[in-house]
Design a binder for these strands. Structure first.
Lengths: 210, 210
DNA sequence: AGCGACGTCACCCTCGCGGGTGACCCGGAT
DNA sequence: ATCCGGGTCACCCGCGAGGGTGACGTCGCT
């Protein structure tokens, strides 16, 4: 039985770098690469990799959404999210979306090897420096729906990030301005912000909008 | 005489990946790595690398500002910016800041080797797919001061991206709210936007704020 | 049948935002 | 000496944004 690791990142350089490192891990027989979350979803059913290393920040389907869908369809999939050092929000979100663990992108060669080896043995990964960020993990998993942005709210936030007024957003979505304002108020509450500028900033930082 | 390439990226994985590739380029004798723009500035005078590969997106001193300062102090420095596929604004900005060229992060192994080899021969690099983005290069270089954000304006924009009101920004910077509003108006004009939400979005997209 | 989340819309009210304009000071370039 | 860019501050004005509240419909779950 062969052990396969699938690497997913939109930057070829990162893919190759990871491949070089992961290929040297004892017990890893094959290393595959994918350039997008969509590709992972499409290939997983056929290739059944034992472990997936996936970047959070990707164009199109982001790492979070890709993981959520993947794990939803394939509960046995093991996903380790790769993240920059500064997006703890995304890390917490990743775990709540079904990732088995996460790694900072600036881990050393050795740490990465060890992490992959551990993950292949079925262990979940928690980077020490960010352990506290996961203290609220259970809260995230069992978080009442009231704290996740709904589709509509995300559409309104996207409109805001494009500099549109509530009225313009309403016309785009075939809604009244008052309805847009209602969604705006609700998403402000969920994000814990007071105005659209803050919402846009937080949206960018959390990767909700691009 | 040895030929040295200095790689600068905040992610160790990317550094190692690039090192693997660049080390194989004919004519390259040494490959050094740095984790931040500050480190490059500090080490350049002593090590005098023949070529620097620098990521645009880095915490602290960004790739753009690091390049600007480096080239300002050392006009003979050769810098190639590494950029994601979607930030053309930053590419144009990079060139205007003194970079000799740029590469998309998902270039192939071969393209990267060829690019490094060319750069070491003193040629500037222009990725075909983004050549048009540089049509305005001269405009950028000779751009009248009226279109670059001033230090104050950037401070105000930063405050906006942190969700602060004009009043709060004023208190932070020891200015009156009216003065903040004046800076806000001016930076809106320069960015071509109508409100702070648009300004924040554009700021994030152009890498002016993080 | 009841409940809660979501979506839609409306009304009121307050306040900060953004635009326009004018003014003064400073420093560097011509 | 003059001009211009930048910084600082002030006034007025209109409008959109944001908060509060209430309402009604549709789901899906229990």
């Amino acid at each position: 039985m062969t052990t396969t690791v699938l690497i997913c990142d939109d930057h070829r350089i990162v893919r190759e770098g990871l491949r070089q490192i992961v290929a040297g891990v004892p017990g890893v027989d094959r290393v595959e690469t994918a350039a997008s979350g969509e590709e992972v979803l499409a290939r997983f059913p056929h290739e059944r990799p034992d472990l997936i290393l996936m970047d959070v920040r990707m164009p199109g389907l982001g790492g979070l959404e890709a993981t959520r869908r993947l794990v939803s369809d394939n509960p046995d999939a093991k996903v380790i999210m790769l993240t920059a050092a500064d997006d703890r929000d995304q890390v917490a979100a990743a775990v709540s979306h079904g990732a088995r663990g996460y790694l900072l992108k600036d881990v050393s060669h050795e740490e990465l090897c060890a992490a992959v080896a551990h993950a292949l043995q079925g262990l979940d990964l928690v980077e020490p420096s960010l352990r506290r960020a996961l203290a609220g993990r259970e809260q995230l998993r069992t978080m009442p729906p009231g704290t996740q942005l709904t589709e509509r709210e995300l559409q309104v936030l996207t409109g805001m990030s494009q500099g549109k007024s509530n009225n313009q957003i309403g016309r785009d979505l075939y809604l009244s301005e008052d309805t847009v304002k209602t969604h705006a108020r609700r998403l402000f509450r969920k994000l814990g912000v007071n105005d659209r500028a803050q919402a846009v900033a937080l949206g960018f930082r959390r990767g909700l909008v691009t």
